[in-house]
């Protein structure tokens, strides 16, 4: 099995007790990160970078994040310039709220609301789709080498189309696939389930974490 690499940068994958967090953790270990799936505040504080994964409903994930005490930890980690990445619902949680769970406040790390994908399309988008990098995306080290690469998406809702979008995919129009604001990155797709292209992105993130440490 893939063990955390002792000499790799310490990456804390936030464990707030929802479904499959194992894959995000494993995939970081696989690309040579010293990754730990953890709810330990001390370890998270020491980490070179923080990962917020997520699957399921926005409201349920926010509740689990609050129940585990990790909501404020995530907000603090995103504010202090350490590399931070939200994945899938973990990306959606970064916004102020979501049409999926009206009345539930998001983390508010990124501005705007998460909305439903167009009604004309099959929901969820459950498929591989191709990334189109924006101008900002072409200089983003996270997406280095990944223009037109294929990533695996599973989602019915999506982040707003502005600002800070680094990549889109076509699904009933251009949909936000990745964003970056300073040291906060997020992807709507699952890099940990996107074969070699996804592992490349995780390698890029690990490199960013290492350079920053």
């Amino acid at each position: 099995m893939s063990e955390p690499a002792a000499d790799g940068p310490l990456i804390a994958v936030l464990d707030y007790g929802i479904g499959n967090l194992h894959s995000a953790h494993q995939s970081f270990c696989h690309v040579g990160a010293n990754a730990h799936l953890t709810a330990d505040r001390g370890l998270i504080a020491d980490a070179a970078a923080v990962v917020l994964p997520g699957v399921g409903a926005f409201g349920a994930c926010m509740r689990a994040l609050h129940d585990s005490g990790l909501a404020t930890v995530a907000i603090d980690a995103a504010a202090d310039d350490r590399p931070f990445i939200g994945i899938c619902v973990g990306m959606q949680l970064l916004y102020e709220g979501s049409e999926e769970s009206p009345g539930v406040e998001g983390l508010g790390i990124l501005p705007g609301q998460v909305g439903w994908l167009p009604k004309t399309e099959i929901r969820p988008q459950m498929q591989w789709n191709q990334l189109d990098l924006t101008d900002a995306g072409t200089t983003d080290p996270l997406l280095d080498g990944l223009d037109r690469s294929w990533m695996y998406f599973v989602h019915s809702l999506v982040g707003p189309g502005a600002p800070e979008v680094t990549a889109t995919c076509q699904y009933g129009g251009a949909q936000t696939a990745a964003v970056r604001r300073g040291s906060v990155w997020a992807t709507q797709f699952h890099p940990e389930k996107s074969a070699r292209a996804g592992l490349q992105l995780l390698t890029n993130f690990t490199r960013i974490a290492g350079a920053d440490a």
Binding site: M1, S2, G19, N20, H22, S23, Q26, S27, H30, Y152, V154, H190, E192, K193, S194, A195, G198, L199
Partner: peptide
């Protein structure tokens, strides 16, 4: 499988309870 192969996978057969599902999802099934 989840430790070595990084594409989504489903497990079917013999799942009768939420607990059966939880064990498989926690182990890395998508």
């Amino acid at each position: 499988v989840a430790e070595q192969v990084f594409i989504p996978f489903t497990i079917g057969g013999g799942i009768r309870t939420v607990d059966d599902a939880r064990r498989l999802l926690r182990a890395g099934a998508d």
